[in-house]
């Protein structure tokens, strides 16, 4: 099957920095769910933003970065505006910060729709209410008129998901979609996202530091360390990981019913980074 997204040898360097934040990252994504796992600072979020071309001032290089028929490396920003939010979008981490505090939730969702589809206000509102129902919000009419500070974290993230799926994109990048939420609502939000992604055949890139979460919700897992991919595995084969870093990550997960000895300290070796001096 033709991949939705194909990245080969992606490198990102932030302005003024000598170090590459990301380098040599390659992967293909079909209509599947790909997890990118790594510690903070491993460059996983940077990969997501590079794909959306939202890294102003950073140097982005790649041998190939294709999204469907588009070459993301050289289409002009003007055309990118028609792609971003319409055919690919991104769910950000914390609804407390990622929603505009002075606009009503519903209007923010409707804006995503009206940016790409010519529609009357009334039509956009109807679509928004529909979408709010799709993310299992019980009183869409009421929530439409709430300001972000008036909704809970779980509700805010559902608003975010509604906003980003409003235009039926082919690719969604979820950047730590649940790590800012209460543990009790995480699973619920993830199930909603998972359900919609499967139902609509969306390609999903799930960026997370939580190995267990990725294991349960993704088909494949990409493990990043210091800006590079160290291992790619099917989610169900995670226990057969060969790379010592992945093994370390797995060993560092606390387990119910496991022994109560101290968790092993995560090993980090410079030699895992290719080309490091």
């Amino acid at each position: 099957m033709e991949p939705i997204l194909s990245v080969k040898n992606l490198g990102v360097r932030y302005g003024g920095s000598a170090e590459w934040a990301v380098r040599g990252v390659s992967f293909d994504l079909g209509r599947e769910r790909l997890g990118i796992v790594g510690e903070s600072g491993s460059g996983k979020s940077t990969v997501g933003r590079a794909i959306l071309r939202l890294l102003p001032g950073a140097e982005v290089t790649a041998d190939r970065m294709r999204f469907e028929e588009l070459d993301l490396l050289d289409i002009p920003e003007r055309r990118m505006l028609k792609v971003r939010g319409a055919r690919m979008s991104m769910i950000l981490q914390d609804p407390k910060f990622s929603l505009n505090p002075i606009e009503r939730c519903g209007d923010q969702i409707a804006e995503a729709y009206r940016t790409h589809v010519r529609a009357t206000k009334r039509k956009a509102r109807a679509k928004t209410l529909e979408m709010l129902e799709a993310v299992q919000i019980r009183e869409p009419e009421r929530v439409y008129d709430l300001y972000p500070h008036e909704v809970s974290g779980g509700m805010g993230q559902r608003v975010m998901i509604a906003m980003m799926l409003m235009t039926d994109p082919d690719l969604v990048i979820a950047d730590e979609p649940t790590s800012a939420l209460d543990v009790t609502v995480r699973l619920e939000v993830l199930r909603i996202l998972d359900g919609l992604v499967r139902e609509r055949g969306i390609g999903l890139v799930m960026i997370s530091h939580d190995l267990n979460l990725v294991r349960n919700f993704c088909d494949r897992v990409l493990i990043m360390y210091a800006g590079q991919v160290v291992e790619v595995l099917d989610a169900r084969d995670l226990d057969q990981a060969t790379h010592p870093y992945t093994q370390g990550l797995i060993a560092a997960q606390p387990r119910i019913g496991g022994d109560r000895g101290p968790l092993p300290v995560l090993q980090r070796r410079d030699s895992w980074v290719e080309g490091a001096a």
């Binding site: 959306l52 939202l54 505006l81 028609k82 792609v83 971003r84 939010g85 319409a86 979008s89 991104m90 950000l92 990622s98 929603l99 505009n100 804006e111 995503a112 940016t115 790409h116 975010m160 906003m163 980003m164």
Partner: peptide
């Protein structure tokens, strides 16, 4: 960033 992701 959200606004940019929306395509504004």
């Amino acid at each position: 960033t959200t606004a940019r992701v929306k395509g504004l």
